[in-house]
């Protein structure tokens, strides 16, 4: 289950928390900040953080094109919060020049719940995972406002808003399993990497 090397995009955000979860699951997990580091991984996690900053830094550090190429070639990628935004093909309320890496046939809205006073935690049913509901933390989180034909919603809030999606080897969640001790999304992702 832990075959392959897993990179965590380490430009900005809570990449250390993802590295800790992955390492705890027995994975060979490494930070990725340079193209040669990206070339050496079999799967990638894009952490929570600020999507506008990650976008800029991915261009400053010449990672944007290699990332897009690897994703197009089928690299398994799991994105949380800002990571989901980076994986989305279309973004609402983005900066005028903001770009994503794309790959998920979805539209997301940044900061969809409002400001930090509206950030919250709740229990969420995620049918693709066995066991009890996921305790999900939403921090200035995005939501998926459109799920295109190629993508599949895998978790929704009680009001029907989509907060987790997958498509092929790509997985994205609006929330942060990496800060709650929840490991099932990462375990699932490691299985995707092993099968890829």
């Amino acid at each position: 289950m832990t075959r392959g090397r897993i990179g965590v995009l380490a430009l900005q955000g809570d990449f250390r928390e993802h590295l800790a979860v992955l390492t705890g699951l027995g994975a060979d997990a490494v930070p990725v900040r340079r193209p040669r580091e990206l070339a050496a991984v079999d799967g990638l996690v894009i952490p929570g953080g600020e999507s506008t900053v990650m976008d800029k830094l991915s261009r400053i550090f010449d990672l944007r094109d290699p990332l897009r190429e690897r994703i197009a070639d089928g690299l398994p990628v799991y994105g949380t919060c800002a990571g989901l935004i980076m994986l989305a093909d279309r973004v609402l309320d983005a900066l005028p020049d903001q770009q994503t890496l794309g790959g998920l046939d979805v539209q997301v809205r940044r900061n969809a719940f409002g400001t930090q006073v509206d950030s919250f935690e709740t229990d969420l049913e995620v049918p693709m995972l066995e066991g009890p509901p996921v305790h999900a933390v939403f921090i200035r989180a995005p939501v998926v406002t459109e799920v295109g034909p190629a993508a599949e919603a895998v978790a929704t809030l009680d009001d029907g808003r989509v907060v987790a999606v997958r498509q092929g080897n790509l997985l994205g969640t609006s929330f942060h399993p990496e800060i709650t001790g929840e490991t099932r999304f990462h375990e699932h992702f490691l299985r995707v990497v092993a099968a890829a």
Partner: peptide, 24 residues
């Protein structure tokens, strides 16, 4: 003094935003 929704303002949510600012 202000009313916010369920699950807001928890220690984890408050500390969590700072976690997302790291490296910035």
């Amino acid at each position: 003094t202000d009313a916010f929704g369920p699950g807001t303002g928890t220690g984890r949510v408050k500390r969590g935003l700072a976690e997302m600012l790291k490296g910035g």
